[in-house]
Design a protein around this nucleic acid. Structure first.
Length: 576
DNA sequence: GCCGTTTTCGGCCCGACTGTTTTCAGTCG
């Protein structure tokens, strides 16, 4: 089995913890840093090594000779001798134990040497038997905390989709604002970066009444447990299964705090390192020269003092954005108001909830200038998919509706389309004559998700080579936290899409977000064009567009890369 | 082990909070 970047990262993380347990200096940080880079690296590291050799691996930030050697050993032999040696000395399940809140490498070592605890069930038994509190440095509270952590881990799913976290975070913020305890409340963390899944919700407040905010936050109805409650910081566990943190800071530090809580860890470390090199110190209270704050009340000044352009929140992942900011080459990102129309929607003609007219009126209310109706086609029998005749009927119906709306003075225009199924051999389940009559033809895989990569890739390529096809819908088919993407060679797909002018969809539905950020980045390198649409099956889902724009911004897309930022006329000229 | 406006040696991000102990190490983000 080929090693994925995730596999490699996991191994490096585990080695970092083993070094830490053995009090090896500096190696833990080095391995952790390399693991983080590996985790977010765009291409397959196994492929990179096999195609271009070991030296290529040194291009991954934080990977030098030593770690490159170990990655190669892992890919080639499926094991790392040094890891196995350490593991033999301390034969315990480190990643399992350290996944418990409050349990770190030093405690794990203590637990093993004193009580021979090797895994989670050992730990649970010892805690329940009251053995932990007998150890030096441990006490009753710590034991109870560990038990709670184990209990939580059993019921928690880890990260939840942004589509669940963001509405919840926004609702908490609304209530904080209504309390009027703070001058300013800001949503930070991965929600602010529009990351597709969220591990915790971070909120920043500027207030002269921090105590009251801490109390109010800890008493929210969504809170299951209070983990930490201090003077300026409170951390709670939410019933939904993730944590939420709030931090109160003085106004003069607001920019620095936003910087600190929005950027991911890697981005922040990189910035602090830059600061240090030019004789400054950066923390969540500001940028300091000695003890003097030289920037901090707003973010732009901090970036400027570090010799960088201000970096949009979505891009802060230390994946090349800092270098672009240094060279003044950051992209001019597509804005949240730039998308003019929706190009994938389903109606009650198939599996959608609402009529074409209802969907159109809601789209107009949202400010869209056009909406494509793209109901499923016949191979998806369970959705009542359209055949050629039904599609012809729908085209007529849409014409009628367009006339009616125009008479009423509505600005929005309905486009006729379809979400056409790609069959096993790459042919489509609607004939070419009918496809040619539609304004928009999107194609998608809805069956045989488990085909081998080569066949799946060939299947999709044949479909997008059809001259009637405009868009490839949800190109990888993944459902976040539920269904993995099907095996497909995206490099090949993007190459062909670029050649045939097939537009790639960024499906904004928060359970899909397909293409995802790093795939968008890759497709951009092939000069592909994109569309951001909602895949809405009801009027409420038409507002999901912001999730897709968030992903596009994470990948550095500009307005010009996205065809539905064009007015209708311009858009139609780009379709086949 | 990594890295270089301190470039092949000598440093390595930084602060809040907790529990247990009484001055701080460990954990977390």
């Amino acid at each position: 089995m080929q090693k994925t970047n995730q596999d490699i990262a996991k191994m490096l993380y585990e080695m970092a913890e083993l070094f830490e347990m053995n009090d090896v200096p500096f190696k833990p940080r080095a391995f952790e840093k390399a693991a983080r880079s590996v985790e977010v690296f765009g291409d397959s590291i196994s492929d990179l090594y096999k195609q271009n050799g070991k030296l290529e691996l040194r291009k991954i930030s934080g990977v030098g000779k030593g770690i490159a050697d170990r990655i190669v050993e892992y890919i080639d032999t499926n094991r790392i001798r040094e890891y196995e040696k350490m593991k033999k000395k301390i034969p315990i399940n480190v990643s399992e134990l350290s996944s418990i809140e409050g349990v770190g490498p030093k405690m794990i070592r203590e637990l093993y040497t004193e009580l021979k605890i090797k895994n989670l069930s050992d730990l649970e038994r010892a805690a329940k038997d009251g053995k932990l509190q007998t150890l030096p440095g441990f006490g009753k509270k710590l034991e109870a905390k560990i038990l709670k952590g184990i209990e939580f881990q059993k019921t928690s799913s880890g990260r939840i989709p942004l589509g669940e976290a963001l509405p919840l975070a926004r609702s908490i913020i609304v209530r904080l604002e209504e309390k009027k305890l703070a001058e300013k409340i800001i949503l930070a963390g991965s929600c602010a970066r529009w990351k597709e899944t969220v591990g915790d919700i971070d909120i920043i407040a500027v207030s002269s009444r921090p105590r009251e905010i801490m109390n109010f936050f800890a008493s929210l109805q969504e809170v299951k447990d209070v983990l930490i409650k201090g003077d300026t910081k409170t951390s709670v566990r939410l019933k939904i299964g993730i944590d939420a943190d709030i931090r109160v800071v003085p106004k003069k530090s607001l920019g620095a705090t936003i910087q600190y809580f929005v950027g991911n860890k890697s981005h922040n470390i990189a910035l602090r390192t830059i600061a240090e090199k030019i004789g400054y110190k950066l923390n969540e209270y500001g940028l300091f020269k000695g003890t003097k704050q030289i920037a901090g009340d707003n973010e732009k000044d901090i970036y400027k003092m570090l010799g960088l352009d201000w970096i949009p929140w979505e891009m802060r992942g230390n994946t090349g954005e800092i270098d672009l900011a240094k060279k003044h080459k950051l992209p001019n990102l597509v804005g949240y108001d730039d998308v003019r129309g929706d190009l994938q929607t389903q109606t009650d003609w198939t599996d959608g909830e609402h009529s074409i007219e209802d969907m159109t009126r809601e789209a107009e209310r949202l400010g869209r200038e056009y909406i494509a109706i793209t109901d499923h086609t016949k191979a998806l029998a369970m959705t009542g998919g359209s055949d050629e005749k039904k599609l012809e009927r729908q085209i007529k119906e849409i014409k009628k509706l367009n006339n009616k709306l125009q008479k009423e003075g509505a600005k929005i225009k309905i486009l006729s389309g379809a979400e056409v199924n790609i069959l096993k051999d790459g042919s489509l389940d609607i004939d070419d004559k009918t496809l040619a009559k539609l304004d928009i033809v999107g194609v998608a895989v809805h069956s045989l998700f488990n085909m081998p990569e080569k066949e799946q890739t060939a299947r999709i390529i044949r479909a997008i080579e059809n001259p009637n096809v405009d868009i490839l819908f949800h190109p990888t088919g993944r459902i976040i936290n539920k269904r993995p993407p099907y095996a497909v060679d995206l490099n090949e797909i993007f190459k062909v899409a670029s050649r045939t002018g097939t537009i790639l969809e960024i499906d904004a539905h928060p359970w899909r977000l397909d293409l995802k950020d790093e795939h968008i980045k890759l497709a951009k390198e092939y000069c592909c064009k994109f569309v951001i649409d909602t895949d809405a099956h009801s009027i409420g889902e038409l507002s999901y567009i912001e999730y897709g724009i968030g992903q596009a911004r994470r990948a550095g897309l500009e307005k010009k890369n996205i065809i539905n930022t064009l007015p209708l006329k311009g858009l139609l000229s780009k379709l086949k």
